[in-house]
């Protein structure tokens, strides 16, 4: 049976396959380091990978503790990514017109395979709002907004506002009663904007001679809804904002947020930045 032994030698074991494979030009062109089990390669794995590069190479042990960060920022970010993926899948099935939007939702629920994309998107969105609030709570309670991290807190607040706007614009898209009336209630507020809403204080001041500048057909609510009520214009506007406008700003702010976490000295701690008050 020596031919079998020969064959075994030629084919090799899985660990040999792996080490052979890591020696191929293809592998070497992708990964610029060896297995990350020594300090040098552990540094390289972070430095040479654009995604891991969000992280520093080394950090204080305390910043690692889940009891300290609750991992809430990370979970919010992960939910954002998962919402992006499910959102893209949903876009394949959805047309933002009064005629198609609702039937498309029905189709999506009844006939699309892997039929939990809508659920994952909706529950993920609710969850993200909660995790962002909790992230803010932990940043507050650890005093992590104190110098030098003041500005990153401000960026965070903007991210929070955008998270809410994300959800608000998305709420309209199913085009059912819940959607239409929730957005009606929400956008009615804009009517009362001082100086800029048709029923807001000071709108009488906004006149040119006898011609009122601010009317139901020209106030901020009209701009938001592209009409006097929540109709097809609003649907398109909200769709574009939801899928393109808000993500565009969000991603930029997210980049700033992560960049600043590192620039400001990593996860906050008593030794860093803040004077240890004893």
């Amino acid at each position: 049976m020596s031919w079998l032994g020969n064959l075994k030698e030629k084919v090799g074991t899985p660990s040999q396959w792996y080490s052979d494979f890591t020696r191929t030009p293809v592998w070497k062109s992708i990964f610029r380091h060896k297995l990350p089990n020594d300090p040098k390669n552990r540094a390289l794995v972070v430095l040479t990978n654009v995604f891991l590069h969000l992280h520093p190479v080394r950090m204080r042990k305390q910043g690692l503790r889940v009891s300290y960060t609750w991992c809430m920022g990370g979970i919010s970010f992960f939910l954002f990514l998962s919402l992006t993926v499910t959102g893209i899948l949903l876009m394949f099935y959805y047309r933002p017109t009064a005629q198609h939007a609702y039937p498309d939702m029905l189709d999506l629920m009844e006939s699309a395979s892997l039929g939990i994309m809508r659920e994952m998107h909706r529950w993920g969105a609710h969850l993200m709002i909660i995790t962002v609030w909790l992230h803010m709570l932990r940043v507050f309670l650890t005093g992590s907004y104190k110098p030098p991290r003041e500005f990153n807190w401000v960026v965070g607040v903007l991210l929070l506002v955008l998270t809410l706007l994300f959800s608000f614009t998305g709420y309209l898209l199913p085009w059912d009663q819940l959607a239409m009336w929730a957005v009606t209630v929400g956008s009615n507020m804009a009517r009362a904007t001082p100086m800029m809403g048709a029923e807001g204080p000071g709108m009488q001041l906004m006149q040119l001679g006898d011609v009122p500048l601010i009317t139901a057909g020209s106030d901020v609510r009209f701009v938001l809804l592209a009409g006097r009520f929540v109709g097809e214009g609003a649907l398109l506007r909200f769709y574009v904002l939801h899928c393109l406008g808000i993500p565009f700003i969000f991603v930029i702010l997210l980049a700033v947020h992560f960049w600043r976490v590192r620039r400001d000295g990593g996860i906050s701690g008593p030794g860093k930045g803040g004077k240890l008050a004893l």
């Binding site: 300090p39 794995v45 972070v46 891991l52 520093p56 190479v57 950090m59 204080r60 042990k61």
Partner: peptide, 17 residues
């Protein structure tokens, strides 16, 4: 959070990742 062992530096790979 200020105990010396908490100040210790660890590698992001694999601990944080």
């Amino acid at each position: 959070e200020a105990e010396p062992e908490e100040e210790e530096k660890v590698f992001v790979w694999p601990d944080l990742v």
